[in-house]
Design a protein around this nucleic acid. Structure first.
Lengths: 200, 200
DNA sequence: CATAACTCGAACAGTGGTGTTCGACAAGAG
DNA sequence: CTCTTGTCGAACACCACTGTTCGAGTTATG
């Protein structure tokens, strides 16, 4: 069981404050530059590099902790979304919320991908995935989403389109405010079964 | 004008052979590991590291050359594809061919992205992009592709879905032989205008 | 075959990161 | 108030990689 380097138990108050500051600073730094160094992060956290290593055995453990923290925050936000009612409307709502998270944590994901052991990223994505999967399954049962492709593929499609949108924004070809609308329109069409009409 | 390190003019025969071997080996190595070192590549090419640096001033120039070479090959393959007739059928054919290229050169793209100066990758992608763009434009004029989203967005969507498929294969959730079929089904639906029926 | 072009290994300098050690100092907990 | 816990900066060892230099050997080419 990796990470969990910062157990909050029996830690002095200032230590806990520093740990929080480090994780927060790391989130910012790694979002700007996925290969940000420990020096950079420590400086941004207003802390000595030694202190950082005092709390996180290695850079890898730090990145893991940061990623876990981000996922937890995201999960909390996604938990608020109302997934009942018309599956298409629910999906639109879910995309709206997910998109903001993807947009914010995109670079952090890259950092995680080349700092963490293979499979770890996917492992931590499991919970958010399930939420999407369940909604899609329900939509299929109710006959509004296509069933000629695997559910996992549809999940992946939504994922891909969102990350693609982030890329488009980076190059300035799409404005952030239009993104959610485009993604929704694209995914809803992509989820429509052959022979059926694409919803507007 | 960067790269073009290997001008074939007035080069000795064995030098040309070595340059070719290096580019080929680099393609393989960088496809396996986007951060492969020059030592690794030289060894794989059956050549001394010094020789490599004799032909390519820096690692960056080598990566550039490799990427250019790959793009040229891809362009040649894509040039063979028949883009006339029903835009949907033409798109399916184009996807089929593009997909193989994306699948093969996926990791190489990553290598290029973090070794080459920003914008260079996009610059070299311009030609392949135009091909897709023109087909989509034609499809829109003929009323089979949606016009409620920008053309560049649709191009990006196709791109995203293909790269997403590569990812799915890496994790073993999709078999390579099914991929093209899934991509085509997804993209054709995504390109359908609201209110219209998704083609089968 | 003679010469210019090329190759090669080893060794070097430089860079930029990681993780550790040391000793002095500060701050929270009991 | 005391003592454990934590902090800090500087310095260190280490590693992997890039790019260069040297001198001796090899190969195409005219």
């Amino acid at each position: 069981m990796p990470a969990k380097a910062a157990s909050t138990a029996t830690k002095r108050a200032d230590a806990q404050r520093n740990i929080a500051a480090i994780v927060e600073a790391a989130t910012v730094c790694l979002s700007r530059d996925p290969s940000a160094s420990t020096s950079e992060i420590a400086k941004a956290a207003g802390v000595g590099r030694v202190t950082l290593y005092g709390h996180f055995p290695s850079r890898t453990d730090l990145v893991d902790a940061v990623f876990v923290h981000a996922i937890e925050g995201g999960e909390a936000a996604l938990g608020q979304v109302d997934l009942s009612g018309d599956p298409r409307a629910a999906l639109a709502r879910l995309i709206e919320s997910s998109w903001h998270l993807v947009d914010r944590f995109r670079s952090l994901l890259i950092a995680a991908q080349d700092a963490l052991p293979p499979g770890r990223v996917r492992e931590l994505h499991a919970d958010p995935m399930v939420r999407v999967e369940r909604l899609i399954e329900r939509g299929r049962k109710e006959g509004v989403f296509r069933t000629d492709l695997p559910t996992t593929w549809l999940v992946g499609t939504m994922h891909s389109v969102m990350h693609g949108a982030a890329e488009e924004i980076n190059t300035g070809r799409v404005t952030p405010d239009k993104a959610a609308e485009y993604i929704t329109a694209t995914v809803l069409a992509a989820f429509t079964a052959p022979g059926e009409r694409v919803p507007s």
